[in-house]
Amino acid sequence: MNYHAIVGCILGTAVGDALGLPYEGISPQRAARLLGPPDRYRFLVRRGMVSDDTEHTCMVAQSLIDAGADVPKFTRSFARRLRWWILALPAGVGKATARSGIKLWLGVSPAKAGVFSAGNGPAMRAAILGAALNDVPSMLNLVRASSQLTHSDPKAEYGAIAVALAAKHSRDYQAIDANLWLDEVVDVVGNGGGELIDSFRRVIRSSETGESTRTFANSLGLNDGVTGYTYHTVPVAIHAWLSNPKDFRKAVTSTIECGGDADTTAAIVGAIVGAGVGREGIPNEWLDGIWEWPRRVSWMERLGESLADSLAGDSSVKSPTLNPIAVLLRNLLFLFIVLFHGFRRLAPPY
């Protein structure tokens, strides 16, 4: 079961990320005029590429292979990977993550590298921990370690915990029980997460009445798009999951239609739903349409298989590696395409 969930989570992250990327930072109204519906890739002709959402998910998976449930070892491994990831000039890296990466290069310890931010960076890479791990206390310790490495605001951690528990619930239950999932979140975050819990209660009521995810996002005041604030990102993503728990296509597209930080919200939803439906539940044309190197779809599948084998007790498993020169070259091409999209947005239709 875990292999099915792990591979589905990683590939679901990648597909949601790649589909949502061209829509990032655009209002729903303008996105419809400029790009059309999010039913196919629009980043590189009819191909898609991934961004930091997928890359961080892969780094967490690699660190989990390195360390298992050993939190200090996991933190050191992830911090090392984050340092080198920053050095490879990734486009679109979040401010908090960039600052923490620079602090790590300056010799700050991983325990003190996080900056006070409630951004959605920790949430975007948390689902893989819920999809992969059976032991909830170990999972939560690793989610906290992953979160605090870059974001010290407890809100960022609470959002990541909710996503990880959602991915685990999606993996474990054929019929999703929103209230059971919420009870688990409440037990973990306690009174400190009261604002987020209240949002989740609104999410559940809205999804039960059949309200669309975009209508729900508008009710939060996000008419111009979902922001990178984790208390906006995560409730919208959870709404799309609860509304379409086994329909990957609908869950992802309904999230992108909300606009704003579309690649991250779609990556989170793709990860959660992917953990439940596996690779088989993700449209083949979307998997085939990802144009990536060196993190090919086949490489991500191999990563998922290695993680599953490692967690099953195979101590000989090593994390799949990447050629750093290839990553740098790929990132330079990616940056060029991102700049092209940026200039394109200066032109009509507005």
Rank of each mutant, 00 (worst) to 15 (best):
V143Q: 07
R144A: 09
S147N: 02
S147M: 05
Q148C: 03
Q148G: 03
L149D: 06
H151N: 12
P154C: 15
K155R: 15
K155M: 14
K155E: 15
A156P: 06
Y158T: 00
G159Q: 09
G159T: 12
A160N: 09
V163E: 10
A166D: 10
A167T: 11
A167E: 11
A167P: 14
K168Q: 15
D172C: 13
D172G: 09
Y173Q: 08
Q174L: 15
Q174A: 14
A175W: 07
I176H: 05
D177H: 03
A178D: 04
N179L: 13
D183R: 13
V185D: 00
V186T: 02
V186A: 02
V188H: 01
V188W: 01
V189D: 00
V189H: 00
V189I: 15
G190W: 04
G190K: 01
N191D: 12
G192V: 08
G193W: 01
G194M: 07
L196P: 01
I197K: 02
D198L: 11
D198P: 02
D198Q: 10
F200S: 02
V203D: 02
S206Q: 08
T209W: 00
G210F: 13
E211Q: 15
T213E: 10
T213C: 13
R214E: 09
N218F: 06
S219L: 03
L220T: 01
L220G: 00
L220D: 02
D224M: 10
V226T: 11
V226N: 08
T227D: 10
T227A: 05
Y229Q: 06
Y229G: 04
Y229F: 15
T230K: 07
T230I: 15
Y231M: 09
Y231S: 06
Y231E: 10
H232L: 05
T233R: 03
V234W: 07
P235E: 10
P235N: 10
I238E: 05
I238G: 06
I238C: 08
H239D: 13
W241V: 14
L242I: 06
P245T: 14
K246C: 14
F248V: 12
R249F: 09
R249T: 10
K250H: 08
K250G: 03
A251G: 08
T255Q: 12
E257K: 11
C258N: 09
D263M: 12
T264H: 07
A267T: 01
I268L: 04
G270I: 06
A271G: 13
I272L: 07
V273H: 06
